[in-house]
Design a protein around this nucleic acid. Structure first.
Length: 982
RNA sequence: GCUCAGAUGGUGGAACUGGUAGACACGCAGGACUUAAAAUCCUGUUCCCGUAAACGGAGUGCGGGUUCGAUUCCCGCUCUGAGUACCA
């Protein structure tokens, strides 16, 4: 039989499902290997051709590792809470779980037909109560924990309470809110229960606090920083504004240093690590207090302005201070004379949107408050300004301006005519600031003559001595907002008593999402959960309180909650006692290989590392980092196909649309006349006449042609850039009777690389390709497309080649009449060489994630064996195993035809590479003259360089090139090359 | 602006530590088989000069450098993509 991919693929997919072929065991003598994909959000559009790219790569890797003798965990699931299902629910009234369920079914069908070796018995769905029970449980552990800086880990809140009860707040070094109280043990005990709870909330790792949030009115929810791009929501592109709201937050900043340090221990792409480093944004510097002048004359809330600086060594170059317009001291620092200026400036700042403020970095603006501070080290009088280049949210919202060393300060000083003080001898500040750290200080009091390092140390020491500053580390990263005013997410397991949050009992988990009538905020503006009737927390059930009913928290958890720990659930997916058993975690430990897109760099991947570290602190996880090795698959871009339409000045309805093939368009495009008008000559008329006859050709007003417009056409009716013209009318009816001006009888399309999107008609669905070529071809083609990590446009042009390869492979095992025929003869040297070359090559390629090169090598191997007419079992049986991870269906079929037990190829041992088969005794030395190769001379590989040189020089070809002149020098690299210098 | 990645035939790409640039595949051209088409197979295919071949010249974004030898290393520049953005 010819290669019948449809039957073969169906047969083996069924077999794998029926026999649980890929079910991983939690106990095994084999070493473990955990291969994880970023699980998908099941959207209504289904999978497009870009999704499976990473899944195919990880599947090849997982299958390869099984052949290499590992116990492989390779699971899949769904990140099934999310906004699109809820938006759809708002529009249609359909419960999000219904659409989610339907979408998951589509995804599953699509995934199954590609032949992935997932262990589906471990499937997880973040929206299933069995799953989010544990998301809620982890939330409770965070609520019950605080970060002890001395131990540098999270600890139980009970431990903190015990400390407060015995020693008060003294001796506690915690990551906490800034407004924590100082108290003795007795004072603590005297606090009311409510006051105690209020205080504890300032320490908990998940806490409620009034914070400035990114409020997106259109989506009716707050967004995380990484969900906001340039002042608009990443999803949907709606405007986002800053708003103060009571919000759940996660104290991720407690882990900032560990998140940063951990990056050095993991094997991730450097750009991705760099992104996380930037996001965490550590800067080492100092905080300095500048005393405010004339303190007596005002009602003061504080008598200094605190700034953060990374260049405290430049403190003698400070010529003014700038504070953010939103800074709390602005009001009291503004003198009556300056009031009008300041008010005007603040009004102007407010008007500017976030976007304008960012875009407009060139214009210098600001206003003087009228007040002064003094330099803490030399008492210099320093004016205080406000300007919007200082951000309220970073550091202290105030900067000390050193115009000689900072370009922004320099421009500001120039603009407002403020002094620029040179502080380093080699500083060049005629035209711009010079931030150098080289040279010796001048004009700098006690650090004059010192270098950067000593100066910094001296200044910090002095500041600490006089109590007006200290060394400080600042992070850009903020605590993560952990709440959404939405329905389709995990309910927060919290109820409110006297306005303070309390956890529900662990035994009451999961707190299930209640049914509501519609998925919109309530009339009073509460989140959708406010619509739930009879949804109150009754403390009687848990044996505490007097049976009052309390309000639950009405916001739900954000999208990243469920995905921040899911790799642990796969280890023990059915456990209803724990999120995963200690034994399972002990065995699988962490993810050995994680493949996914780089768009999750600062969201999912950072939050996951954070939760993992927390789980380790509370003794649940073993490894500090969850994902040992990570590979980013590149994005698959769309490749739109374009036809070019002639546009007339007036568009008389009597004329048919005229479309030009690519090269005809190009000719006319480049040949415009002096007015920029396309220049149409008789050729076009002739072309049309040839194809459509005289009547049509004569009837076109050529002189009225104004321009060409590109029109995107469905890529599915284009093959190898040739448009199937008869099909165009089906999706663009206006072109049903269009005139197609062809070249050589074919209509070629142009192309454009852009996002894969429905509106560009460039979406390619894997289903169609599987239908036409089969899963094995799709798998290999996606790999053949290019390096995994590189972004590339999807283009089906080469898929035929891969399909042909598989047929050719199939033919190796069959005779001319498609009868399965293999011989038991001993293989020849050449056959063994071909086999062992591919064994080695594929092994090396997989280990370095270079899947595209293996596909080429397979083609070479099959070409070689075809030329050798090799159908020997000893060769083919091994070759099938090597190919199996890439094209598992055809490999299974041939494996069983060879007489092996069905399904056993999944665990068959990867063939052992024997280098002896590759040993050559002769080598065709390329002989180059001055680096240009002119000829090849075959010589024994055992020959020593001196003899090679002699042999080469004696060769007739070389003599001819030398033309009687003696060579200047001869370089011989044994087994590589000979270079003759003349 | 800053950081990172990249630029190789008509196209996707290969060349792993500096050692035969263009493997493999698509496309294209020619041929075989066929009444014909599809399928399949064979040959050619970086560019330029040369009627074909031998042969010669140029050639990995551009300009320089190191080297016997550079797609690979170094310096400068151009372009493309991604991330990030007044971070003190």
């Amino acid at each position: 039989m010819d290669y019948q991919f449809k039957d073969i693929e169906k047969k083996w997919q069924q077999f794998w499902a029926d026999n649980n072929t890929f079910k991983a065991d939690n106990t095994s003598d084999k070493p473990k290997y955990y291969v994880l994909d970023m699980f998908p959000y099941p959207s209504g559009a289904g999978l497009h051709v870009g999704h499976p790219l990473g899944y195919i790569a990880s599947d090849i890797f997982a299958r390869y590792k099984r052949n290499k003798g590992f116990n492989v965990l390779h699971p899949m699931g769904y990140d099934s809470f999310g906004l699109p299902a809820e938006q759809y629910a708002i529009q249609t009234g359909q419960h999000p779980s219904v659409t989610t369920e339907a979408n998951i079914a589509t995804y599953r069908r699509q995934l199954d037909q590609i032949g992935f070796s997932f262990d589906w018995s471990r499937e997880v769905r973040t929206s299933s109560p069995d799953y989010y029970k544990w998301t809620q449980w982890i939330f409770m552990q965070l609520f019950n924990s605080w970060y002890n800086k001395d131990a540098d880990k999270a600890e139980s809140i009970e431990k903190l309470i015990t400390h407060f009860e015995t020693k008060g707040s003294a001796g506690i070094s915690a990551v906490c809110d800034e407004d924590v109280l100082t108290f003795t043990a007795d004072e603590w005990k005297a606090f009311s229960k409510k006051a105690q709870q209020e205080e504890l909330l300032k320490y908990r790792l998940t806490y409620l606090r009034e914070s400035t949030v990114n409020w997106c009115a259109a989506l009716g929810t707050v967004l995380a920083n990484d969900e906001v791009k340039d002042g608009f929501s990443e999803r949907g592109g709606y405007p986002v504004e800053q708003k103060k709201m009571m919000q759940w937050s996660m104290r991720i900043t407690a882990y900032a240093e560990r998140l940063l340090q951990g990056l050095d221990t993991i094997d991730w792409p450097e750009p991705l690590k760099e992104m996380q480093r930037n996001w965490i944004g550590k800067s080492v510097g100092a905080s300095v207090k500048f005393p405010i002048e004339n303190q007596e004359s005002r009602t003061k809330s504080q008598d200094f302005i605190e700034v953060f600086t990374t260049r405290v060594d430049t403190i003698f170059g400070v010529s003014f201070l700038v504070i953010a317009p939103e800074h709390e001291l602005v009001k009291e620092l503004t003198t009556p004379e300056q009031q009008a200026d300041i008010d005007a400036y603040i009004a102007q700042t407010k008007k500017k949107s976030e976007l304008d403020r960012m875009a407009d970095t060139k214009t210098v603006s600001g206003a003087f408050t009228g007040s002064y501070v003094t330099n803490p080290l030399n008492g210099a009088k320093i004016p205080v300004w406000i300007a919007d280049y200082v951000l309220a949210g970073y550091g202290t919202g105030a900067v000390m301006a050193v115009p000689s060393g900072d370009q922004r300060d320099y421009l500001f000083a120039k603009h407002f005519d403020l002094p620029i003080i040179q502080i380093i001898d080699i500083q060049k500040i005629d035209t711009e600031a010079d931030p150098t750290k080289e040279g010796k200080y001048i004009n700098s009091d006690f650090i004059n003559g010192l270098g950067y390092k000593e100066a910094t140390a001296a200044v910090v020491a002095k500041l600490e001595e006089i109590g007006l500053g200290k060394a400080k580390v600042n992070f850009r990263m903020r605590d993560a907002i952990f709440g959404r005013q939405r329905y389709w997410g995990e309910p927060v397991p919290v109820y409110f008593k006297d306005g303070l949050p309390y956890l529900i009992q662990e035994s009451e988990l999961p707190l299930v999402l209640p049914e509501i009538d519609k998925y919109l905020p309530t009339e009073t503006g509460e989140p959708p959960l406010g619509r739930a009737t009879d949804w109150k927390y009754n403390t009687l059930s848990s044996g505490e309180g007097r049976g009052e009913a309390y309000e639950y928290e009405l916001s739900t958890m954000p999208g990243w909650a469920g995905s921040s720990w899911y790799w642990y659930r796969y280890m023990d997916a059915d456990n209803n006692q724990e999120f995963a058993s200690e034994k399972a975690i002990e065995y699988w430990k962490d993810v050995d290989l994680y493949i996914g897109g780089s768009e999750h760099a600062t969201g999912h991947l950072l939050y996951s590392r954070f939760w993992n570290k927390f789980l380790k602190d509370i003794g649940k996880a073993i490894e500090e980092e969850p994902f040992k090795k990570l590979i980013n698959q590149g994005m698959i871009q769309g490749r739109s196909s374009i036809v070019y339409r002639l546009v007339f000045d007036e568009n008389p309805s009597g004329y048919l649309p005229i479309l030009l093939s690519k090269n005809i368009f190009k000719d006319y495009e480049s040949a415009r006349d002096s007015n920029g008008q396309p220049f149409l000559n008789e050729d076009l008329k002739e072309l049309i006449k040839k194809q459509y006859g005289k009547d049509v050709a004569e009837n076109i007003p050529y002189s009225n042609v104004r321009t060409f417009i590109p029109i995107r056409v469905d890529v599915n009716i284009v093959e190898n850039d040739i448009l199937k013209t008869e099909k165009l009318g089906l999706h663009l009816p206006e072109f049903k009777d269009a005139i197609f001006v062809k070249e050589n009888g074919k209509f070629y399309t142009g192309h454009e690389i852009e996002k894969m999107s429905k509106r560009y008609f460039n979406v390619v669905n894997p289903d169609d390709l599987v239908e036409r070529y089969g899963a094995d071809t799709l798998r290999m083609y996606e790999m053949f497309l290019g390096p995994l990590e590189q972004s590339k446009p999807w283009n089906t042009n080469g898929i035929e080649g891969v399909f042909k390869f598989l047929r050719k492979f199939w033919r190796l095992f069959h005779d001319a009449n498609w009868n399965f025929t293999v011989s038991n003869e001993a293989p020849t040297k050449a056959e063994l060489k071909a086999l062992h070359k591919i064994i080695k090559k594929v092994e090396d390629d997989i280990e370095r994630f270079s899947f595209n090169t293996s596909v080429s090598s397979f083609m070479i191997a099959v070409n070689e064996l075809t030329d050798l007419k090799c159908n020997k079992r000893a060769i083919l049986e091994n070759l099938v195993i090597v190919l199996a991870p890439y094209a598992p269906h055809i490999a299974e079929e041939l494996w069983s035809l060879l007489g092996n037990p069905a399904g056993s190829i999944s665990t068959a041992a990867y063939p052992k590479f024997n280098p002896e088969y590759l040993v050559e005794d002769e080598f065709a030395y390329p002989v180059s003259f001055n680096g240009k190769v002119r000829t090849n001379i075959s010589l024994p590989l055992t020959m020593e360089p001196a003899d090679v040189e002699a042999a080469v020089l004696a060769h007739a070809d070389v003599q001819k090139h030398l033309d009687g002149k003696p060579p200047k020098k001869v370089i011989v690299v044994k087994g590589r090359i000979v270079n003759v210098v003349v």
